[in-house]
Design a protein around this nucleic acid. Structure first.
Length: 593
RNA sequence: GAUCCCAUAGCUCAGCUGGAUAGAGCAACGGUUUUCUAAACCGUAGGUCUAUGGUUCGAAUCCAUAUGGGAUCACCA
């Protein structure tokens, strides 16, 4: 069945052609949802066509409205208010649409033959995951689901930053102060144990630094002369040379961290198809530098450092290789981009990375375009804002981070508290109840982090637990569970709702179906614009409108059996849409709560 | 110094590819349950859309400038 918006646009375009001999492309005719206070579901704005048709907006609306009413069987009527043509669809069309949706096994788009990689999470192995990582993980996982739903073949990748000076800091502190403790002996998750030594390094190096300053060394020199930092740098050199002792320690501590991360990933419900490790990729990209010089994209300075001039793009001159021939970050990112493409051949590639790296990715993408990489035009940086606390930015060294595992547990506990208070788990087995707390706690957390436009920074107040009422995950989950209760009763009563006949609809019923008509467009937009938030806000709209309907009418008390059937069908379809949308966000839709 | 992002109700956010009287949730106040799940629903109140100018039939939305907040740019990662 063809999309109603296209049908309307087609007929409006035809109206312009027939009535005014004006050719307007269908997709130039913008339709907006009709405001609630007017009758209709789609609105066509006439102002912009007043001049070329020589008619006042109101008159134009009437002429087109009449044409549509006579020529388009999906339209039952129209009204014109101050130049806005509000189009009223027939109830038959709404019901027909509902029935067609009820038959669908899935709302996924047909495969489009394109392949996309979504790189997200990408943690450092020197400290545990925190709230900021959760935003990244939920956005990335959700984005992968949305792309998959719109027809892409998706590869979820995690590029783990497992080497570098920050890792050596944890290693050094462990070596000095760790007494060979292990996650088992310390009874700590592996990532937490390693993180503990990262903090310890910072603490000890501050002590060492202030001692130097006491002895008359300047602030700046004390930083450079700090013996702990020097040792860490030496350790990094040893690692690069493959020193057995250092490498073994590195392997041991990283394996602890990976165990810890896997536990967290499993809990928060994210997964990856491919892991990349910087220890394997940090040397990549040098041959691309050579290639770039040969192509004249890069230039070499006298000190043999290599640069790119991006002033024409409004950026700067940017270093791509140091004078000593060693890589910088962007060198390996070029190499990794090639590696990914050679391995998976994705024509699109999404990097879910915080907005502090906006400039970096801007440069990287410009470089890859200049190097004529076949995948260059499909690159996208899904940049997201920081999660701030009321006190400001989270800082791991200052202990002001909200730990991911702790927060998840708090959410589950809060779900348990609220569920128990409401007395909603009668008849639940203990493990079912536990699963529900988990589903609701995670649902609240994920929705909270996803509903905000990714590019905006957002505020999290630890003093106020994340809400379970209003515009929240549990509200939407609740609506789903409500419908499931309806369906259980409908099945009990053996209502043959799939076979619903044509009836007259209520305004609120039309409103719901009009929303469902929007779904495809919203999902497409979320996919094209890389914004899971659009789906979050959309599914909330559905839940809210359905709850309004639910309170306004009675389904099973209704005398007319055809109306009962219709309402059950409407309810079932709403539940399917809610579940579909929530699942794209990585949120489960419970059947009871 | 340069560049980028952000600013909407007391709070948290939608709306931003120009359209009708700027919307939700939370918090506040009032109401709704012998009926399908009240984590809900209905209502009241709450706004100089940071400011000024411009573009036009029409600006929260586009442009310019200013203010405030954040981030980035170094042979750092």
């Amino acid at each position: 069945m063809q999309n109603i918006e296209n049908i309307l646009q087609f007929h409006i375009s035809l109206a312009f052609k027939t009535l005014f001999a004006i050719e307007i492309e269908s997709n130039q005719l913008k339709l907006t949802p009709t405001r609630k206070e007017f009758e209709g579901s789609h609105t066509f704005t006439c102002f912009q066509f007043a001049k070329q048709t020589g008619k006042a907006p109101d008159a134009l609306g009437n002429v087109i409205g009449n044409y549509l009413k006579q020529n388009c069987s999906e339209i039952s009527g129209f009204n014109v208010v101050k130049g806005f043509l509000n189009i009223v669809l027939t109830d038959q069309y709404f019901i027909h649409f509902l029935k067609s949706q009820a038959q669908k096994a899935t709302f996924d788009f047909a495969p489009n033959g394109q392949k996309v990689m979504v790189e997200y999470s990408s943690p450092n192995t020197n400290k545990p995951l925190h709230l900021g990582h959760l935003r990244n993980n939920f956005l990335g996982f959700s984005m992968a689901n949305i792309l998959k739903s719109t027809g892409y073949e998706v590869v979820k990748a995690n590029l783990i930053n497992d080497r570098g000076i920050h890792i050596c800091k944890s290693m050094l502190a462990y070596q000095k102060f760790g007494n060979n403790e292990t996650p088992q002996t310390a009874n700590l998750k592996g990532d937490k144990l390693v993180g503990k030594y990262y903090v310890e390094f910072d603490k000890q190096s501050k002590v060492a630094k202030s001692k130097l300053i006491e002895n008359g060394v300047s602030e700046e020199d004390a930083e450079k002369q700090n013996p702990l930092l020097i040792e860490a740098q030496e350790m990094l050199l040893k690692w690069e040379k493959g020193d057995t002792e250092v490498v073994n320690l590195w392997k041991k501590m990283n394996s602890w961290v990976y165990d810890g991360f896997e536990t967290t990933y499993k809990t928060i419900g994210v997964a990856f198809d491919k892991y990349y490790y910087e220890s394997n990729t940090y040397l990549l990209g040098k041959e691309i530098v050579e290639e770039g010089i040969a192509k004249g994209v890069f230039y070499k300075k006298e000190d043999s450092s290599v640069w790119i001039d991006l002033t024409a793009e409004g950026l700067d001159h940017k270093l791509v290789l140091r004078s000593d021939g060693t890589s910088v970050y962007i060198t390996q990112d070029m190499g990794t981009a090639d590696l990914k493409y050679n391995e998976f051949g994705c024509n699109r590639s999404v990097y879910v990375v915080g907005n502090e790296q906006d400039y970096h990715f801007n440069v990287l993408f410009h470089i890859l375009k200049k190097l004529n990489r076949p995948y260059a035009n499909g690159l996208f940086h899904l940049s997201y804002g920081m999660v701030d606390l009321p006190s400001g930015k989270m800082k791991s060294r200052e202990g002001t981070v909200v730990d991911a595992d702790d927060l998840v547990q708090e959410m589950i506990d809060e779900a348990q508290k609220q569920t128990t208070e409401l007395g909603k788990i009668d008849g639940f087995k203990p493990d079912e109840a536990q699963k529900l707390y988990y589903t609701l706690g995670l649902g609240a957390l994920k929705y909270f982090l996803i509903k905000v436009d990714p590019k905006k920074r957002m505020l999290f107040n630890p003093a106020e637990s994340i809400d379970f009422h209003g515009n929240t995950g549990p509200f939407i989950q609740y609506t789903h569970a409500r419908v499931c209760a309806i369906m259980r009763k409908a099945n009990e009563l053996k209502i043959d709702y799939k076979n619903t006949q044509h009836i007259d609809l209520q305004a609120t019923e039309r409103e719901i179906i009009a929303l469902l008509l929007e779904c495809e467009k919203v999902v497409k937009q979320a996919s094209d614009e890389y914004s899971p938030a659009l789906i979050a806000n959309y599914v909330y709209e559905i839940a809210k409108t359905y709850n309004s309907f639910y309170a306004a009418v009675s389904i099973f008390q209704e005398q007319n059996q055809e109306i009962v059937k219709f309402r059950v069908l409407l309810s079932e379809t709403v539940a399917k849409y809610i579940k579909y949308c929530l699942n794209m966000l990585g949120i489960d839709a419970p059947e009871r709560m």
